[in-house]
Design a protein around this nucleic acid. Structure first.
Length: 812
DNA sequence: TGGCCTATTTTTTTT
DNA sequence: AAATAGGCCA
């Protein structure tokens, strides 16, 4: 009886607080199910509750398979299902990880061994170059990247090497790619390696060619769920299809309006035709939005209506009207970055918001730079969601390459990377000869290196260097079964890796190679703890290979988030800024060829807009510096599709404009009443051929001492607006300043005897907890924007006094 | 062969 | 602006 009661109450928890359509989806058990879920419609909730419901109906956890596109999505799902139905683990993970695991089991069926390696993008690029060379193809009219893209596309569409030549409509590029493809594929096989696309490709092929395997997996995974179904490509479609023939209990969720991975082979038809593919499908539409204000939804809806290939959804919400969406025009990208950082700072000080409430989205990664700079300058904590960064670092890639080679001696790309790092006298010529030898015999390069003596063209001296390396490898190889930590430490020791780093690389605050190595060891320690079983090297490498950008996003960190629009999918933030909504960028210039691409760009903006919960700003500039030079910019055509009457248009050039114009025109208005102004000295002026006027250096001014300007000359008022509001809040003691992770009010700071800003002047020596001691070489800005440039031992850094005062103590 | 300097190119988005 | 490739000298 108690158990019945327990179940009843658990059931209640599962079904409580669901709208009728949500409940319908959650209670659906057998047969195909299509959940069309608009942004913010509680999709994750429905999916997790449905899994819990399946479990409560006595379905075994191991019979359920939940496929996502990112590890983060899978993790979140897992946590939430655990909360609802504790104890029973359901396999949840990315498509790629699922395929990787299955391929380990069935490796031999596709010509691999179970310790196969997964090449990351740069690995496959290396392999591609080698294949192009071996195929004797000229790249004068194309590039390795383009050939790679062609091949990738073929794999996504399940076209094997021998079939690519048959493709009816072949572009010249495809024809070249078709010649490289078999060579590349053969090379991967020789290296016992796969690229990302192969994970799907091999597994799909395996299922097609081995009916027994297909059938047993189909039986095994009785209930399959696929998240973000609109982003599946043909390979993924085929996999899902193959696993739901005898057991067609397939539930997919998605939103055609949020399909943004067409360039990666995603096929919108998969979701648009789902009802045709699975005849007895139940379709549930989740249209109520629980995330955004009506203002934001209207803008999103108006925009997406311009897409022709879509199923219309009526987005609605109960939420009260919020602030109008802001459309803001800036002079240039620097002003954009500065103003956004200022707005965020202001909202943190005056509205009690936290850094984590804000996100800035952009079309491409390069655009985060200016923002990053603006935030650093202000001491605003931020995170750039670009998770691959760490594993892309040279020193990390080097060490991982050793690990790869230890795990898989056939991993040629790893060998090429490692054979002469740290340098050990094996030069380009020697390497080329080993490579030729390997190619000729069709053997892995390490094997060829092992037989260095056989290579006639190789001088004795070089051969012995190579054999030295092979011996080093063998010593490392013995440690393969040790813990990861031991293995790594031994590796660093044996190769004298840190000496090598210290010899060759330059340290800076943003890049400290030795510290990175330590961090990798930490990650290894962590991994050892979680995987105490032996032989986890393979698993570790797989995990590292399959992390995505978004996986690095840390919700718990109290930081402003900077990321691409693609990475933003699935997330939400109270306040969102979307920058550079400009022609050639969004829509991107390379997306102009087909309507499908153009519509995808529109969806990308749609995704960005619908991430915002309460407040949203779209912005563009009049000019922007792209790859070095400043170019005029045209606003995005998408902006003309928005309901402008509903929005707030701000065309302001904040004080920067005023500052520069007024100043270069020869001085400040009289009413400003500034004390001594020093213009950049001759030495700096001669450095600077453009002989721009240096920013003023105010020697004897600070926030506290500024005379009250309120009510002053009209010309001035706009320029000092930020400053006086800062001062007002400072007087009230409410302004919060983030210092070293904590929050303090300005009044606290003053009471605590913090150094008055005026004390920071040129020539003063200061000390910083992480930079060490340095000399102030320049002072600029005023009020809350007052900043100092400090020259430390081997680098320079700028600090905003208002936010860095606690860190920058005056030494003399 | 290896390190350093200069010239050239660039990825839009990512598993 | 930044990263890479190629060229040159020790």
């Amino acid at each position: 009886m108690t158990s019945t009661f327990g179940n009843a109450s658990a059931m209640d928890a599962i079904l409580r607080d669901l709208t009728p359509p949500q409940r319908e989806a959650v209670q659906h058990i057998d047969g195909p199910l299509l959940i069309l879920a608009g942004p913010g419609s509680g999709k994750t909730r429905v999916v997790t509750h449905r899994i819990a419901n399946l479990l409560h109906h006595g379905i075994d956890a191991h019979q359920i398979l939940a496929l996502t596109f990112t590890n983060k999505a899978a993790d979140e799902m897992r946590t939430r299902v655990q909360g609802l139905a504790p104890g029973r683990p359901v396999w949840m993970g990315t498509f790629h990880r699922f395929c990787a695991q299955q391929l380990r089991r069935y490796a031999s069926m596709v010509g691999l061994s179970e310790n196969y390696s997964i090449y990351d993008t740069s690995d496959s690029k290396q392999a591609m170059k080698r294949a192009i060379e071996a195929a004797g193809v000229s790249t004068t009219h194309t590039s390795p990247e383009q050939i790679a893209a062609s091949i990738s596309h073929a794999k996504n569409r399940l076209i094997p090497p021998e079939m690519m030549t048959d493709a009816s409509s072949m572009t010249a590029r495809d024809a070249i790619a078709a010649r490289v493809y078999p060579v590349y594929q053969q090379q991967l096989l020789t290296s016992n390696a796969v690229d990302f696309d192969d994970l799907l490709f091999h597994f799909a092929r395996l299922l097609r060619e081995n009916p027994d395997v297909r059938s047993s997996l189909d039986q095994h995974y009785r209930y399959i769920m696929v998240d973000e179904y609109q982003d599946t490509n043909l390979a993924q479609y085929a996999i899902v299809r193959a696993l739901s023939i005898q057991q067609p209990n397939l539930a997919v969720t998605g939103d055609p309006d949020q399909s943004i991975y067409g360039w990666r082979g995603a096929d919108l038809n998969n979701i648009l035709d789902f009802e045709k593919d699975y005849p007895n499908v139940t379709t549930v539409r989740l249209e109520q939005n629980y995330r955004s204000t009506p203002n934001i939804l209207r803008v999103a809806d108006q925009l997406i209506r311009f897409n022709r290939r879509r199923k219309h959804k009526e987005l609605f919400t109960d939420h009260p009207e919020g602030d109008p969406v802001v459309l803001r025009i800036y002079e240039d990208g620097y002003e954009e970055a500065d103003d956004i950082a200022d707005q965020i700072l202001d909202a943190i000080h005056n509205e009690g918001l936290r850094p984590r409430d804000f996100a800035v989205f952009c079309r491409m990664n390069a655009l985060t730079r200016s923002l990053e700079h603006a935030m650093r300058k202000r001491g605003l904590p931020y995170q750039i969601v670009n998770g691959l960064e760490f594993y892309q670092r040279k020193e990390i890639k080097d060490l991982l390459a050793y690990l790869h080679l230890i795990n898989n001696p056939n991993h040629d790309v790893a060998l090429l990377r490692v054979i002469n790092t740290p340098t050990r006298g094996i030069g380009a010529k020697t390497i080329a000869r080993i490579q030729q030898h390997a190619d000729r015999l069709g053997i892995p390069m390490l094997e060829a290196a092992r037989r260095a003596d056989e290579i006639e063209s190789l001088p004795k001296r070089s051969a012995s260097m190579v054999l030295n390396f092979v011996r080093l490898y063998d010593r490392l190889r013995v440690k393969a079964t040790a813990t990861l930590e031991d293995l790594l430490r031994y590796l660093v020791e044996e190769t004298q890796f840190n000496d090598y780093l210290e010899r060759t690389s330059v340290e800076s605050t943003t890049n400290n190679p030795v510290a990175n190595v330590d961090e990798l060891i930490n990650a290894a320690v962590e991994f050892d703890l979680q995987h105490p079983d032996e032989g986890s090297l393979e698993l570790f490498l797989e995990q590292v290979a399959l992390v995505s950008d978004v996986d690095a996003f840390e919700e718990s960190d109290d930081r402003v988030t900077l990321m691409t629009l693609h990475a933003a999918k699935g997330l939400e933030f109270p306040r969102v800024f979307i920058i550079a909504v400009e022609d050639e960028l969004l829509p991107h210039r390379r997306s102009r060829e087909t309507e499908a691409q153009y519509e995808e760009e529109r969806r990308l903006l749609f995704v960005g807009i619908t991430r915002a919960k309460q407040w949203l700003q779209l912005s563009h500039c009049k000019r922007r510096s792209i790859r070095g030079d400043m170019r005029p910019v045209v606003a995005s055509a998408f902006l003309t599709e928005l309901p402008r009457d509903d929005m707030r248009l701000v065309e302001s050039s904040v004080d920067r404009d005023f500052f520069e114009n007024e100043y270069s025109d020869g001085g400040y208005p009289d009413s400003w009443d500034l004390p001594a102004i020093q213009v950049g000295d001759d030495a700096t002026a001669s450095d600077d051929q453009t002989s721009q006027v240096q920013p003023p250096v105010i020697t004897d001014e600070d926030v506290c001492q500024l005379p009250d300007h309120e009510g002053d000359d009209d010309v001035v008022r706009e320029a000092v607006a930020t400053e006086s509001s800062y001062r007002r809040t400072a007087k009230r003691g409410k302004a919060k300043v983030s210092i070293a992770g904590g929050l303090k009010t300005a009044a606290d700071l003053m009471a605590a005897g913090a150094t008055p800003p005026g004390a920071y002047r040129e020539g003063a020596v200061v000390s910083h907890p992480s930079y060490g001691q340095g000399t102030i070489v320049a002072v600029s800005g005023r009020g809350p924007k007052r900043s100092v440039k400090v020259k430390f031992a081997d680098e320079e850094a700028s600090f905003l006094i208002a936010y860095a005062a606690a860190d920058l103590s005056l030494v003399q």
